[in-house]
Design a protein around this nucleic acid. Structure first.
Lengths: 174, 174
DNA sequence: CCTGTCGTTTGCGGATTCCGTAGCTCTGCT
DNA sequence: AGCAGAGCTACGGAATCCGCAAACGACAGG
């Protein structure tokens, strides 16, 4: 029987007719996959069988879909922590204005471990960057020495975190 | 053959028996729990036995510590998604200036489902809020109708997301 | 020095879950 | 029709999860 090494599920950037993809290349999600994601947003370790019972699918089908969602990068199952309890006492959001190529600056900032979150924006800042540091000295060094040293960075404005009020991961759950 | 005395208790960088809690009430984490968290940040579904082998603990001990970390709220194991692929096409960071009590405004914003992230800051904004919406109309409604309607909100400035460059959850991993 | 307590770890056995595979259905294409 | 690919179900063996009893170390008091 057709014993070609099909290299099956790993490299599958765009399946031929996997429904329509939106034109930026993001795969389309049906209602069942969305329901699976919701289950895993409540508990990332929930057994496949329990998920299957909740969404009306067999255990193996859930397992295949979850694996595919992970491979495609649609979701990831991870532990998230409160930075304070893990020893990072200083956080800040930094708005950056850029002269020249914004994306290359964004790449440079993304390469820094302290930059937890990097996004290109429209408005009076070209980039917004979230910084997670151990203490004030660390924060000062990152902002004044490292970020401002990146070629193309024209100016920065910092917003030091005083209190984190809300932080959720429930995108599909509304 | 179990001949991997990896990280036994001899190499403790700090005081070994720290059951004390730091003054703000957050439980203190020793090196082993931190290592467990790192394992689960790489893969939230990694088996307890594999984690135990990596951190030098038995499967049951890892299971117990993970359960305790979850119960204490130090970490949670969840699926995180790319909002774009889940149908939320417009995101923005909104800086808010407040007159009067900042915290009550923060509470009001936190109650909105579209506000994914709310933090009190020092700087030219009193609050930074991340908004996740389905489309432009939705975003407009949230910012102009709902946020600005909150008593105490003096002004807002919006930074619409153009491209998300980096988003990690690797706080313990540095 | 001895003893009891408390928190943590270990070592098991049984129930549950994970994982690969084979067979089936449905759809799209030639 | 015939073929090929994707997705689902069923099922069995291996691995994992889970609860529990026992062991260990640190510590306070007698």
């Amino acid at each position: 029987m057709h014993s070609e090494p099909v290299a099956s599920r790993s490299a599958d950037p765009r399946d031929p007719r996997d429904t329509r993809e939106s034109r930026n290349g993001t795969p389309h999600l049906d209602a069942v996959s969305l329901a699976i994601i919701e289950q895993l947003q409540e508990d990332g370790r929930r057994p496949y069988a329990a998920i299957g019972k909740a969404v009306g699918l067999s255990e193996a089908a859930v397992r295949q879909r979850v694996q595919k969602l992970l491979d495609q990068g649609v979701m990831q199952i991870v532990a998230v922590t409160d930075p304070l309890t893990v020893g990072f006492r200083r956080q800040a959001m930094v708005g950056v204005t850029v002269e020249g190529d914004v994306e290359s600056v964004a790449d440079a900032l993304s390469a820094m471990g302290e930059c937890e979150y990097v996004v290109m924006t429209a408005g009076s800042f070209d980039l917004m960057v979230e910084i997670v540091c151990e203490d004030d000295d660390h924060l000062l060094e990152v902002i004044n020495k490292r970020i401002r040293a990146v070629p193309g960075v024209r100016s920065t404005e910092s917003f030091v975190y005083l209190k984190l009020k809300k932080q959720t991961y429930m995108w599909g759950t509304r």
